[in-house]
Nucleic acid binder design. Sequence first.
RNA 1: GGGCGCAUAGCUCAGCGGAAGAGCAUUCGCCUUACAAGCGAAGGGUCGCAGGUUCGAACCCUGCUGCGCCCA
Length: 864
Amino acid sequence: MTTELPSQYAPAEVEQRRYETWVGKGYFTADPASDKPPFTIVIPPPNVTGSLHVGHALDHTIQDAIIRRKRMQGFETLWLPGMDHAGIATQNVVERKLAASGQSRHDLGREAFVARVWEWKAESGGAILGQMRRLGDSVDWSRERFTMDEGLSRAVQTVFKKMFDDGLIYRANRIINWCPRCLTALSDIEVEHTNDEGELVSIRYGDGANAIVVATTRAETMLGDTAVAVHPDDERYKHLVGTEVELPLTGRRIPIVADEHVDPSFGTGAVKVTPAHDPNDFEIGQRHNLPSLTVMDERAVISVPGPFEGLDRFEARPAIVAALRAEGRIVAEKRPYEHAVGHCSRCKTTVEPRLSLQWFVNTTPLAQAAGDAVRDGRVRIEPPELAKRYFAWVDNMHDWCISRQLWWGHRIPVWYGPDGEIVCVGPDEEPPAGEGWRQDEDVLDTWFSSGLWPFSTLGWPEQTPELAKFYPTSVLVTGYDILFFWVARMMMFGLYAMDGKQPFDVVTLHGMVRDQYGKKMSKSFGNVVDPLDWIERFGADATRFALARGANPGSDVAVSEEWTQGSRNFNNKLWNATRFAMLNGATINGELPAELSTVDRWILSRLQHVTAEVDQYFEAFEFAKVCDTLYHFAWDDVCDWYLELAKPVLQAGGPAADATRRVLGEVLDNLLKLLHPIVPFVTEELWLALTGGETIVLAPWPVAVPALIDDAAETEVATLQKVVTEIRRFRSDQGVKPTQRVTARLDGLDVAGIVAHESLIRSLARLDAAGDDFAASATLAVSDAVTVALDTRGTIDVKAERARLEKDRAAAAKEQAQCQAKLGNEAFIGKAPEAVVTKIKERLAAAEADLTRIATALEALPTA
RNA sequence: GGGCGCAUAGCUCAGCGGAAGAGCAUUCGCCUUACAAGCGAAGGGUCGCAGGUUCGAACCCUGCUGCGCCCA
């Protein structure tokens, strides 16, 4: 056992060294053959091409806290790390790199390009893994997975085949979200809607009595109009339904149709219908058998022959409006006109609805099952309020477009034959050979593979020991902002592929990390925090504690540098408390002595309450409360009171000192263990020094011992604290320097039941014993029983003392008035519960006793 | 446009039916040999506004205002 600790904690010197030891000893490696009950968390895989931001730091801190506690509780824990391949984002990065040297992926060809992406994956993914180590994540590195791994790819193919055979995957020509920059289809959740400024243009179609005015924000798509639609009950247009009108600039004649979905109050009540370039129009087109006319190519450039051919959609818009104006067809224009516009979540390009042939998942039965699993309680969402959000999503899910026009990802396992055959190939099947067969060029949405994560990472479709032991996983920890991405997808796939067995028992949601003013972090705002920066300056523990301390379930966490600094200070406080304890011979060896002082019994009693509370807060994912409880116990109870009370005892020596050394060891041992899940490094360092044990990582989790709860000791110490605090308050008000010893006589300690603690009180309040020549210059009534007579060695500040007493009197008088008012109210006496009435009576009595005491003290003051 | 949520000390947040709390910031005094990344003390709030329910409302209900988020 070492006793030499420096006076300041230097995280940089211990963190990386400790982490490597933990990993090297295999503390985080899960054993599927273990007899212990399992506890599993799969990490929501970060995007391989990104880096860990402070939001990940929060997410990982929570997961680590959960898993470390479970490990200490004796569970066979598995926290499985990994990353997803982030199809679009990763391909974009590598294409950008290629573009810098003037190349495109087509110059390289598919195979070489994919090889290039793997190189980038090694580089970028490595950085993320390094960040996780710095944070202290107790993940099982031997089971790290990547969505593009062979095993996970096999899982993807297996599920695809099963769904294909079950008719849940189909190919169709539909309107999908298309990114004209990424040149791929997107799913609904990869589109971000923002309110943008655009224009609303009203255009007259047709002439004379047949003329009809349509309003649109997308004039350029009029080239592809194949109808005009009005509401069937709209009297203004009833006579026109069934007639045709000439489409300007094209000479084509298009029908006027009646459709329930037209909003008569929008614009003129008549809308142009462009089935190939708008999802709603597509639906109208389906209902009325309208042709679909695609007028743009994949880059959103006008592709119909004529004067606008070759113009980008945003160039075509003013050009077409100008041409219409020249014909006198522009009836009205509103600019700016704010309306919702979809953007590619990866590159922010405005999404172009595009009619194309894609693969889809029929989500109806899957989403139903995903909703039911939560409704019937098999999966719990924490905090429960957020379940509403989940239902809102799964109960209104559209079919999911899963094909992506990319090269980086899982290639769709479908082969097309020379005679139009379509064959889906399972993992152990040979693709059809022969002339004319070719595989689908597209890859699957990344979420198709990350949705399988809770079981594909455990070896599925093989029936591995890991799968048997660790599935279903115990908890999924993620932000509410990606509830739809993660939870919904994993639920659908898990329930489907694992025979109805849910992927996790509990989903616990945290919020987003914001800056000190509650503002969202954004690069453009310049308030983004790099967790590594904080780890380097304040330590991983301080960063973790700062995040966990703000983590109230489901709500956002505002953090600042000061907040993190405060957490660093807390760690240092712990450090020094342990340092003090060790300098004074604290020990964990041997049984707790049977004979303990009141103060020792008090701190042990407090420890039991704290242990029980903290445990309960952990169970409820109340990390902010875990931190708050331990922070105050450590700082207030242990450091400010217990250690100060222990000092004179330790100095005096003897059996009392031995007992206190043992209790001190006991308290710190447990405190460090309780804190370890949140701040693993500093607690390990201190615990090793204090106990000489092997590691706190595997130390047994503290359990409250009811027999050690001692109400009498708690009451006694509370009285002692009140006396000391009152004396300190008097000294401070009187301007007596903290170092200045004051002679005093303490009366009434026996009545208050703390006569045994006189020397402790003198020690904490810095009072010397009164000699024969003692002459009090002030008398302090600190409670109705205890009076302190002090010789302040001079005249006391009567004005300050009077002000202090007047303040106390005002508070007591207010309390008295409030209690009297309640007790004078017959309705209160009659209807309030007995216990409440009794409590008010007690408060009144206390207030009145205070008033008497204060009045006496005021009278005793010199009038000058 | 539809839905959800929030409004409590200067800032960030707890509290959600029976005495207004914490951290940081602020003020005053201290290098009191574990810790100045510290110690002791103090100030600061008609709990967004207006009604209602209740013996009693920051807490429950209604409306309003102002923010935020999700979906379209």
